[in-house]
């Protein structure tokens, strides 16, 4: 399944890039992420409990970051598997300076558009019975991730500016 889209963060590009590499931030923003451990350079192990309505899945997996071109782009590879199936997402994230049009930013209107484009593979029960809802839930999860990232970003900015 192809996924693609973009989300504009109220953060400068450098900062957005840093946040996207910060395991503590990733752990906080990935929906259901319960544990994220660094196991190598740009490589993490994680536990995720994904809850979407009545659906619940426990996944154990890995997050890897490759093809680093700070602060412009990097590739994010997320793999997870659990009893209900497994998934692998592989996406290129490109960060482009942009103007923030909605939401409040303490930076004024300066922001970063994060464009993502990639492929999600799903296997097991999830793939066999979830087709009808995969696209909308994948989008929903990505949206949630960026929303939390924006929130986290705003907080850290706040902390940096207001000591």
């Amino acid at each position: 399944m192809k996924v693609g889209g973009s989300y504009t963060l109220p953060l400068l590009r450098q900062r957005a890039h840093e946040l996207l590499q910060d395991p503590a931030i990733l752990a906080r923003c990935m929906p259901g992420c319960e544990d994220l451990k660094k196991i190598g350079p740009d490589e993490y192990e994680m536990q995720m409990k994904v809850v979407v309505s009545a659906v619940q899945g426990l996944f154990a997996g890995k997050v890897r970051i490759t093809d680093q071109k700070p602060p412009e782009s990097f590739r994010l590879i997320v793999e997870g598997s659990g009893k209900v199936g497994f998934m692998k997402g592989d996406g290129l994230l490109t960060l482009v300076p942009a103007t923030v049009t909605t939401g409040v930013s303490i930076l004024g209107s300066e922001g970063t558009e994060v464009r993502y484009e990639g492929d999600v593979q799903v296997g097991g029960t999830l793939a066999g019975v979830g087709q009808r809802l995969l696209d909308s839930t994948a989008k929903m999860i990505i949206r949630k991730f960026f929303e939390k990232l924006a929130e986290a970003g705003a907080e850290t900015e706040q902390a940096a500016i207001v000591p």
Partner: peptide, 14 residues
Amino acid sequence: YDENAQLITGELMD
């Protein structure tokens, strides 16, 4: 079947 040979019409809802 998708390209990874997952049967994606795996029940009667699809």
